[in-house]
Nucleic acid binder design. Structure first.
Lengths: 199, 199
DNA sequence: TGGTCGATATGATTCAAATCATAAACGCCC
DNA sequence: GGGCGTTTATGATTTGAATCATATCGACCA
């Protein structure tokens, strides 16, 4: 919970619910609100001219999204859409800034969170630009294993479909399917009933 | 100047000079210091197994680098190397945090800067993963034009070599050379004495 | 003035991922 | 239980950027 619920309430956050596949905001919308996921999950992605989706991030309970646009003062760079029935809290931009100003430790949590997302993108950028699919996918999966609630737990069950992995890396589904299969044959990951496991 | 010189001095920052091609720190070094460029420039990049360089950023006078590692609490993710004779200021991690705590407006500048770098990487990621070289290069050049001191000035002279553009996008020099030439033929940019111009 | 180095240029060839086509497996709901 | 949509699977073919090879240009300097 990046901003504690008491504080959200104290600053009169608006709590509301949206359905699966409902949009929270669209790419290029002016960034007017800070959003935090209470339950469910929200996907931020955009589409290229030929309709290919690129997933920039998926955010779950306790996480915030869209706040880089507020902090950096630019329009939302992607669409935000609920991937299931989802409960959200939101506060207007000015209130969000006010909260940061009043609570150093919250502000610090946000800079830390931004720094970590930056790291994720830096890793992915380097991978995508200089390695082959198996290296990209293994790096992505290991990053996910080591940077979720799972943290170091053994036998990490990858919570994404092959299509989602494709949409996070820019690879095609068929390539992901083939590569994941090859990685299994090489003993670098396990597949049990189509689910991908990484120790 | 993301942290004003008076404040750097007040907190007893260490000012020093390094020569061209001298390293400031290496990839995976523990992040112990905050660095700010006084004059000159510093390149952050890393190398893939086969020796291909990927440039994550180039930082000039007034800009900071390496602070995401401090703020996000992870090792430096890249090498930092001077691309010319360069003057730097540095303060230890704890002092940096202290400065943020004491000065909300400086802290805010850092969150804003992180958000903007995140935006840059998000744009590049999407481009590299779903578009062809000409689209990637035009998007990169336009971003650079609109997000440097240049801001909107007409006829932006791209301050990078074709090799550097290649190393920022993961394309090969030959591809960049060919693509840039094609873009010129299509009238989407100008080349005068090998220098690339974008209106 | 000639020499060296880094950047730009260009053609020929290769190769791996995208694309296209089609099918099987699974989950879900009426 | 049967039908439908989503996910996974697999083969055949295409394609465009990487790779390899080589040449030219320009700046700097001895």
């Amino acid at each position: 919970m990046i901003i504690p619920k008491e504080i959200l309430t104290e600053y009169k956050a608006h709590f509301f619910e949206i359905q699966k596949d409902e949009y929270v905001f669209l790419e290029d919308d002016p960034a007017l609100f800070y959003y935090q996921v209470i339950s469910g999950s929200v996907k931020m992605s955009s589409f290229s001219d030929d309709g290919q989706e690129f997933i920039q991030g998926i955010f779950r309970a306790g996480q915030s999204f869209g706040e880089p646009a507020i902090l950096g003062d630019f329009p939302y760079p992607n669409n935000a859409i609920a991937t299931e029935k989802t409960e959200l809290a939101r506060v207007p931009k000015a209130v969000f800034i006010e909260i940061l100003n009043a609570h150093f430790e919250i502000h610090k949590k946000f800079t830390s969170s931004l720094a970590n997302r930056l790291r994720y993108k830096a890793i992915l950028l380097k991978e995508i630009s200089s390695y082959c699919p198996d290296h990209i996918i293994i790096t992505l999966l290991k990053y996910l294993r080591d940077n979720t609630e799972h943290k170091g737990k053994p036998n990490f069950c990858v919570p994404y479909t092959r299509q989602e992995i494709a949409d996070m890396t820019g690879l095609r589904v068929e390539t992901v399917i083939r590569t994941v299969k090859k990685l299994q044959q090489d003993g670098r990951l396990n597949i049990v009933q189509h689910k991908i496991f990484l120790r």
